[in-house]
Amino acid sequence: MPRITTVLRQSRKAIQDLDLLKVLQSEIRCEQSLNPELDNQSGPTGDFVLDWDSPQSQDVVLRKKYESGEEVAVSALLGPEITCADSNSRRDVLMKICIKKPGLSSILQFDCGYSSEFDVHNAYYIPPSACLHSSVYKGPSFSSLDPQLQDELRNYLVSKGIDQSFGDFLLHRLHNKEQSQYLNWLRKLEAMVAGSESSFDN
């Protein structure tokens, strides 16, 4: 017991020396001032509905269903940080777009990136028999396709609502999601440190 008391006293001194609670509170105020709209995010664009947005995950899933029964599902998350030529950095949205026609089990899948414009990395036609097998060959890379076919596939995505405003929405939403998670983590840490300080005082 005396040993635990000594450890607690040393921990209290370390927290006080570092002014950890003040540092955390300052960081929280800074984050709130830089991102005042974190708790007031706008909804999806177009006819897309937010289908998944757990506070514990990095991704979001949006869906759109047409009267015909056709479905478009988009799974998106922020990619790794990329250092640009001007030494600034950016993070693109990485997304998988799956389009399913009514009455069919096959899926048309696009793997895309978005920063200020869409970059289609791959386009796959996935037949029903291949849906459960990730090792099945899905076709050539998008960049190796005929340029006219690439343009037609990009136009097809635009016709499904995958356009610049949708990309901007996702970019904004995912950055806010990440900042909200960081802010929540800071608040939990603040409560833990404040609780430690008050327990030392008692």
Rank of each mutant, 00 (worst) to 15 (best):
Lys13Asn: 11
Glu117Asp: 11
Gln16Leu: 09
Glu70Met: 15
Val61Leu: 04
Asp47Gln: 13
Ser199Tyr: 10
Lys65Trp: 07
Arg154Trp: 07
Leu189Asp: 12
Ser141Leu: 08
Met192Gln: 07
Gly167Asn: 02
Gly167Phe: 00
Gly103Cys: 05
Pro140Leu: 00
Gln58Ala: 13
Val193Ser: 12
Phe142Thr: 03
Pro102Ile: 07
Pro44Gln: 09
Asn35Arg: 05
Leu50Glu: 15
Ser115His: 07
Leu38Glu: 05
Val72Cys: 14
Ala194Asp: 07
Ser106His: 11
His133Gln: 13
Val93Met: 03
Thr83Ile: 05
Lys177Cys: 02
Pro44Met: 10
Met1Asp: 14
Gln164Glu: 12
Arg12Gly: 14
Ser106Gln: 08
Gly139Leu: 00
Phe118Glu: 09
Lys188Ser: 10
Leu21Asn: 05
Tyr66Met: 13
Arg173Cys: 06
Leu34Met: 15
Pro102Tyr: 07
Asn202Glu: 12
Lys22Leu: 10
His175Cys: 13
Ala76Trp: 00
Ala85Tyr: 09
Ser165Ala: 09
Leu24His: 03
Arg173Ala: 10
Lys138Glu: 00
Leu24Tyr: 03
Leu174His: 03
Leu62Cys: 05
Asn40Tyr: 09
Asp51Pro: 00
Val49Arg: 08
Ser106Gly: 06
Arg173Asn: 01
Gly139Arg: 00
Glu31Asp: 08
Cys131His: 07
Lys22Tyr: 09
Ala191Cys: 07
Asp168Leu: 06
Ser11Ile: 11
Gly69Lys: 06
Asn155Asp: 11
Val136Cys: 08
Gly79His: 01
Ser135Asn: 03
Phe166Trp: 07
Pro80Gly: 10
Val158Pro: 04
Lys101Ser: 15
Leu62Gly: 04
Glu31Cys: 06
Cys98Trp: 05
Ala123Asp: 00
